[in-house]
């Protein structure tokens, strides 16, 4: 008799929790791929395409589906480490094909040389270039991600990548720096 009660009780409990879980899975269904979203948040969003994907989000989706985690050159080691932590995989060195220095840069158009071809505007992934046909173009430095994509299409090579200047706003304390002393 007691075994029957036990079975009954456990059976009822199982049915109850089953129903609860079933309801929860419907009620709290998450739209989209949360992992890809999280990965996307870790990527630097330069949209440079160096990873071989047309933007950061496609790469995040690819990583979520098993792509190598070490293809983000602008993110560098830090980003790889973060992705590795999130994915629970080993940290890998940056893919050799993508070895670039990831000092932050900003594109700059030498405006005297610009012929107004709009090729760079079409190449810019974040619409950070102002200008129109046969008019001089210029870069909105604040919006530029330094992705380099506008440099190649320029027929007159008037786009330069300039490292972001250190100001008191973005200066980092450097413990190991040798203090500058004026010798007089």
């Amino acid at each position: 008799m007691s075994t029957v009660i036990a079975i009954l009780v456990l059976g009822v409990l199982a049915a109850l929790f089953g129903a609860l879980l079933g309801y929860a899975s419907v009620r709290f269904k998450v739209e989209g791929d949360p992992l890809a979203e999280q990965l996307d948040a870790l990527l630097p969003q330069t949209q440079c395409g160096q990873c071989g994907y047309p933007g950061c989000k496609p790469y995040a989706e690819a990583v979520a589906n098993g792509e190598a985690i070490n293809k983000c050159a602008p993110g560098g080691e830090d980003t790889i480490k973060k992705i590795a932590d999130l994915m629970g995989v080993e940290v890998q060195p940056l893919d050799e094909n993508h070895e670039t220095d990831n000092t932050p840069k900003v594109a700059f158009i030498i405006e005297e040389d610009c012929i107004g071809c709009t090729k760079c505007i079409q190449a810019c992934p974040v619409d950070a270039i102002l200008g129109t046909t046969k008019q001089m173009h210029t870069i909105i430095a604040d919006e530029c991600t330094g992705c380099d994509l506008c440099v190649a299409p320029c027929p007159v090579d008037c786009i330069e990548m300039i490292p972001v200047a250190t100001t008191t706003q973005n200066w980092q304390w450097d413990l190991d720096s040798i203090p500058v002393v004026q010798v007089d």
Partner: peptide
């Protein structure tokens, strides 16, 4: 000094995050 370095890095990271978010929005918009 360590704290100042840490603070500066976090501030920088925040700026970068803001910039990344902006770039993301602009990329999607484009």
């Amino acid at each position: 000094h360590y704290y100042r370095v840490g603070k500066a890095e976090i501030r920088q990271q925040k700026l970068l995050d803001i910039k990344a978010e902006k770039a993301k929005v602009r990329f999607e918009a484009r």
